[in-house]
Design a protein around this nucleic acid. Structure first.
Lengths: 241, 241
DNA sequence: GTATACACGTGAGCC
DNA sequence: TGGCTCACGTGTATA
């Protein structure tokens, strides 16, 4: 019968988190607590401690409800779940905030130049070699190919080449990319592989002569192409699953 | 005397939330609980309930620490204060977000020249797919091992795990690492591979429950170990762990 | 039936 | 000392 009261507390505080600092409902139970002697050493101490602890719990619960009220999309009313949802919500907010700030920074840094590219990069040190449109080679059925979205080869200084590959993330795409580049016997200074939102971004710094730029690009192109060729001689086997 | 233990728990978990997943100290008390007959109605029920409740409290505390870890500028370690700070932090974030969105909306509506999108991404980018004869890739089956120098698994927030692998750069080591991680069926958010001065640094962000931290680490260790084993049946497992 | 989740009272540590 | 917070075990209701 007193459980109804706790349950009631847990539920009541939920829909209004702002203060309501009332300590209702409990005074009547004070008579229940036992004899009214306030002088009893442990009896008095415990009774004060009891109400204190009760208030502490109540405050903590109020805070919890308040937390729940500021977090949208709460699924479970569970205490632990409330905190969990709050955490993920905070992380989401933090991420969004950084994204928005980046966007603002980008928008602000475009004074009036007509075309908006990632200019700070390819402005001076990027020398694009070739541009071509890509035909998505049967992107639906081809599961084990390297589906290149973008390939850039630029020279940075005289001896350093920057290679930028963007492709769809399929199973083992990272492995395949690594295999291709390993097979090319290049002088790879650093290689940076990044996976995000279904795509893979590979940035390589390669030591090579400037005049080898075209050669390097061709090498990579043919490497990937050849890999894809070897991977799907016949795509009948893949259809098994 | 046992309070020291509780206090210790509360404090210990605070500065490092990873691991310490031991359920120590209680088995010896099991003898105290009385006869070991599991059939005793209240005895068994209470003991099960005790450990269950203990776990619940522990989980709730872990969540609380996780919450504290994602909220900057926490002053008091107090449970209620943690939640309070989290609430005000969330409210601050929400306010900032709306402000940023408004700013973006304003910036976007400013006179934009010609073509617009900051989405300069899938603009014209080129893709080459020229096929050519390719060098044999099977050389990848070299039997060099993954020589792990360091392996770190840390939790970032509650659902995100950060894995840091450092190993020597041998031929195809990147490929091998990718293969291992692909084979583990993890929820990899981002993976970052970096090669420098004869070593390879791999940083992964993996979505996993906080409780799985040790499991994740073990998974990776055994994955690499198993890979090394298959690669060199005769070679003894060298280095590390 | 057994989990799961809660509030409660209690003893102990820390300013 | 007293006010504060904490973890613990327990009883109980809900799923």
């Amino acid at each position: 019968m007193e459980n109804m009261e706790q349950e009631f507390n847990w539920e009541t505080n939920s829909f209004l988190q702002n203060e309501d600092f009332e300590y209702d409902s409990w005074p009547l139970e004070e008579a229940v607590s036992g004899s009214y002697d306030s002088s009893s050493p442990d009896g008095a101490a415990s009774s004060k401690n009891i109400v204190s602890e009760r208030n502490r719990r109540q405050k903590l619960n109020q805070r919890l409800f308040a937390l729940r009220s500021v977090v949208p999309n709460i699924t479970k009313m569970d205490k632990a779940s409330i905190i969990k949802d709050a955490i993920s919500y905070i992380q989401g907010l933090q991420y969004e905030e950084s994204k928005l700030e980046a966007e603002i920074r980008e928008l602000e840094s475009t004074p009036r130049s007509s075309l908006s590219f990632s200019k700070d990069f390819d402005r001076d040190l990027l020398v694009p070699v070739t541009s071509k449109k890509m035909k998505q080679l049967d992107s639906g059925s081809s599961r084990s190919l390297i589906e290149v979205i973008e390939l850039k080869v630029a020279s940075m200084g005289e001896r350093i080449m920057v290679v930028n590959v963007t492709c769809n993330k399929r199973t083992d795409t990272m492995v395949k990319l690594c295999q291709v580049f390993e097979s090319l016997n290049l002088k790879i200074l650093t290689s940076n592989l990044n996976s995000f939102s279904g795509m893979i971004f590979n940035t390589l710094f390669i030591e090579a002569d400037e005049e080898e730029q075209d050669v390097l690009r061709l090498k990579i192109e043919t490497g990937i192409g050849a890999y894809n060729e070897t991977q799907s001689p016949t795509w009948s086997m893949d259809s098994l699953y």
